[in-house]
Computed example of a mutant assay.
Amino acid sequence: LYCYRVASVVGLLSAEIFGYTNRQTLKYAHDLGLAFQLTNIIRDVGEDARRGRIYLPIDELQRFNVPARQILDGQHSEDFRKLMSFQAERARQLYDQAFAQLPAEDRKAQRPGLIMAAIYRSLLDEIEADGFLVLDRRTSLTPLRKIWLAGMTWFKG
């Protein structure tokens, strides 16, 4: 519900602004918003913890044996890495689900969202490649890489 309210609603509004002809595009926008928010949560776990906040579900912390105190104290562990891997896979499934729901006739109009998706998904890959060391650092892409991803996505259509 939180992810819907802070991200899917933005995706739905963006789809309206960018334009669409097929209502299926709204399902794409909804799921893409969820994927973006999950990526943000993964990226910002450490920053949020330093503010005394955790945006990961308690039942999933328990499932992976990651006490909230461990996150708040910035302590990496194998269990934490597994939890983050689980979250990243959930985000990837939402990206895939969103892309599968975007009708071909609306792809061009929705290019801004597709560009953001290329950037966010690359960020997610980078975070994973770094071993999910998000408790003590914030992984980001260089501006040049973002521009390259944007250009590649724009010209892909």
Results as ranks from 00 to 15, higher is better:
Ala109Val: 01
Arg107Cys: 09
Ile54Val: 14
Leu114Ile: 03
Asp79Ser: 12
Gln97Lys: 15
Ser140Phe: 09
Gly113Cys: 05
Thr142Asp: 10
Leu32Glu: 05
Trp154Gly: 03
Asp48Gln: 10
Ala129Asn: 11
Leu141Val: 09
His30Gly: 00
Val10Gln: 06
Thr142Gln: 12
Ala118Leu: 00
Val45Trp: 02
Asp31Lys: 12
Gln62Pro: 01
Thr25Lys: 07
Asp136Gln: 14
Asp125Gly: 11
Arg92Ile: 07
Arg90Asn: 11
Thr21Gly: 15
Ile54Leu: 11
Asp106Val: 08
Ile41Val: 14
Ala15Gln: 07
Ala150Arg: 04
Ile71Thr: 06
Leu144Thr: 08
Glu126Val: 05
Leu83Gly: 12
Pro67Lys: 13
Tyr28Glu: 02
Pro57Lys: 03
Asp136Phe: 01
Leu114Pro: 03
Ala35Trp: 08
Asp73Glu: 14
Arg111Asp: 10
Glu60Arg: 15
Leu32Cys: 01
Ser122Cys: 07
Phe132His: 05
Glu47Leu: 11
Ile42Pro: 03
Ile42Tyr: 02
Leu13Pro: 00
Asp125Phe: 10
Ile42Cys: 02
Leu124Ser: 03
Ser77Val: 05
Leu133Asn: 12
Arg53Phe: 06
Gln62Asn: 15
Glu89Asn: 14
Tyr95Trp: 03
Tyr95His: 06
Ile147Ser: 09
Arg51Lys: 14
Ala117Thr: 03
Arg107Thr: 13
